[in-house]
Amino acid sequence: MDGFNAMFEKAKERIEILSSLESTKEESIESMLDKKGYDRRDFMKWAASITAMLSLPSQFTPLFAEAAKLADRLPLIWLHMAECTGCSEAFIRSDAPTVDSLIFDHISLEYHETLMAASGWQAEENLEHAMKKYEGKYILLVEGGVPTAMNGMYLTLGAQAKTGLSLVQEAADKAAAIFSIGTCASFGGIQAAAPNPTGAKGVDKVVNKPVINVPGCPPSAANIVGTLMHFLLFGTLPALDRYSRPKWAYGNRIHDLCERRGHFDAGEFVESFGDDGAKDGWCLYKQGCKGPYTFNNCSTERFNQHVNWPIGAGHGCMGCSEPNFWDTMGPLEKPLESHLVGGLNKTVDNIGTTLLSATVLGIGAHAVASMFVKNSDEQEGE
């Protein structure tokens, strides 16, 4: 509890600092919330969900509520590199409060090529003005891999044809914090897949400052908003794993909390898409699900306002939040031989299930035992 108490006091100090900063909006966030029809109960429910998502005690809920009300004190600059804009699509679908009331009305989004009205010279002027006016204060979010081959000439932006590489480096140098949004910005993504002719890299490989990676193709809106809220309240980076991903979001494997985990433990696998096992929601491992070696919270947060996710819809995890997933996680609809116990993948039909390496994947002994019990029962019944 001493650690949480220290965090609590630090958060209170952070609230005082944010309160002293000049608002970028003419109207207060509280006033906007009232106009949007959100009462205090709804707003506190949202703050409580953020608190729980970040694995913090409930006493932090009022602080997150206060931090959200002061969110317009921290301007955002969102840059697009080599990407499909899917991460922005995920971001604008954050659900409660809605994106326009929480993100765009409350947080000062100074630059976003997809969403802003300005274009051409005016857009570039807005970006340069924001970087100068809020130097050392703004949060930089980058979407997309950064091409580095030919000195970055595979991607040029705007009327001045600046390279994406130079633009990211310039913006990062003046930012208070840097977030890589999506797998492309975090690790290069599909742009960095072999043979990677453009030399695409993650943002952290081209700047000299700490970067928080929020991978996924796309990441859930919850992971984006939660990471922003953590920095807003504490002013520091959250606890990160070895790939600079927030542990609160990427600390568990998809497999750990998967709704089909019980079928995995029982050795019940979909043998082909559309079979009876698929209809009954059995485990998709044998159809190439990468959940046992992918770290993300998709199984709990889901997508489209928490309605569903790929495994729930009947297709295995592709491992999209892992580095180099396009090269290392294929083929997408077959198990990875590199992660199987030697030889067993060749006799999968005889054994009745595929035994995963407990050393590599950390699968519990109970799961291994249950597979063989199931197989033994089936053989006795024949």
Rank of each mutant, 00 (worst) to 15 (best):
M1H: 13
D2M: 09
G3Q: 11
N5D: 15
E13Q: 15
R14T: 08
E22W: 00
E26G: 15
S28H: 08
I29T: 15
I29P: 00
G37C: 10
G37L: 09
R40S: 07
D42A: 14
D42G: 03
P57Y: 06
S58N: 08
Q59G: 01
A65K: 15
E66P: 02
E66A: 13
E66S: 12
A68D: 00
L70A: 05
L74K: 12
P75E: 06
T85P: 00
S88G: 05
A90Q: 04
I92H: 02
A96K: 15
P97D: 01
T98P: 02
S101Y: 13
E113W: 04
S119Y: 12
S119Q: 09
G120C: 05
E124N: 07
A130T: 02
E135P: 01
E135H: 11
Y138H: 12
L140Q: 09
V142M: 03
V142T: 05
G145Q: 08
T148S: 08
M153C: 06
Y154T: 02
Y154P: 04
L157G: 01
G158V: 08
G158D: 03
T163R: 01
Q169E: 03
K174N: 01
A176T: 06
S180Y: 04
S180W: 05
G182V: 01
Q191G: 01
A194N: 11
N196D: 12
P197W: 12
A200Y: 05
K201R: 15
V203A: 04
P210A: 07
V211A: 11
V211S: 11
V214P: 03
G216Y: 02
P218V: 01
A221C: 07
A221P: 08
N223S: 12
N223P: 01
I224E: 09
G226W: 02
T227S: 15
M229H: 09
T236Q: 10
T236W: 00
L237T: 11
P238R: 00
R242L: 07
S244A: 13
P246T: 08
I254T: 15
C258R: 04
R260W: 06
G262A: 12
G262E: 13
D265V: 13
D265E: 15
A266L: 08
G267W: 07
F269N: 13
E271T: 04
D280G: 03
Q287F: 01
T294Y: 09
N297M: 03
N297Y: 03
R302F: 00
F303L: 07
Q305K: 15
P310Y: 05
G312C: 08
H315D: 11
C317L: 02
C317F: 05
W326H: 13
G330W: 13
G330A: 14
E337L: 12
V341N: 06
L344F: 15
L344I: 09
T347Q: 04
L355D: 04
T359I: 10
T359P: 01
L361C: 03
G362E: 08
G364A: 12
S376W: 06
E378I: 01
E382C: 01
